[in-house]
Amino acid sequence: MDFSPTFDLELQLEGFNGPLDMLLHLVRKQKMAIADISIAPITEQYAEYLNRMEELNLDIAGDYFVMASTLMLMKAKSMIPREQEAFEEMREELIFQLEEYEKVLTQAGKLRERHKEISRSFPRSYKEKIEKEDWEFKVGDNGAFLLVEHYARVVERRKALRPILIRPKPYTMKDVLSLLFSVFAEKRKVRFSALARVRERGFVVYLFVSMLELVREGALKATQTDTFSEIILQRRTIFTEEKQEQLVARFE
């Protein structure tokens, strides 16, 4: 097999436009008609090209690997007598694909030529589109007022873009969790609503999350008889101070 990676190859590898392009290149290199393609050697060469591309750290599209596996499957089938028919079918399919692709290349080349040729003539540069664009800003006698109007619009827009201030809460998750610990150091059973009473929404959310955390850790047991009904919190164990600090630290 006359295959030796050369400098020429390195240049070529980046220039392939897909697996069919690469395959066609290999067929042509062998000075073979597409219809006479022999799968085994082509499969090997294709794989070697792919390896070389990997060595060169080229970004290889998945398409190339799909083709590689198709070729290998064909090669395998070609060696199994009872798969001969399936192999021939696949081979015919590949030949058809390559021949069609060769036509596409010719047509693409022809299009490129046509385009190059017509591009040597220039139409008028004037473009109606630009003229038709909605140019609201026409300055007449009232130009100054218009200017003020536009300025006002800009100011309005700036207002709309002003960032929303996020005020820091007067308490943190840490505080709320610590509070829960101190409550249950004294009491065994507390209603959720009693804890959440008169506090604002942010606090209730923090409280709820803390409650879930402690239920998960096994410090509390929460019971609720019905949807939206009162949640009763019961102490199961009292955590050591060390363990409490550990939990609180999670919300640093």
């Binding site: 436009n17 897909g18 694909q97 069609e100 596409v104 022809k110």
Partner: peptide, 28 residues
């Protein structure tokens, strides 16, 4: 080149689907 190939396929075989164009170029 890939764009020219794609354009050639569409122009010569229209109307055509994206999948059919991809199959002709041997890509996904």
């Amino acid at each position: 080149q890939a764009a020219f190939e794609t354009l050639a396929i569409v122009s010569y075989r229209q109307p055509i689907t994206s999948q059919e164009v991809a199959a002709m170029r041997g890509v996904q």
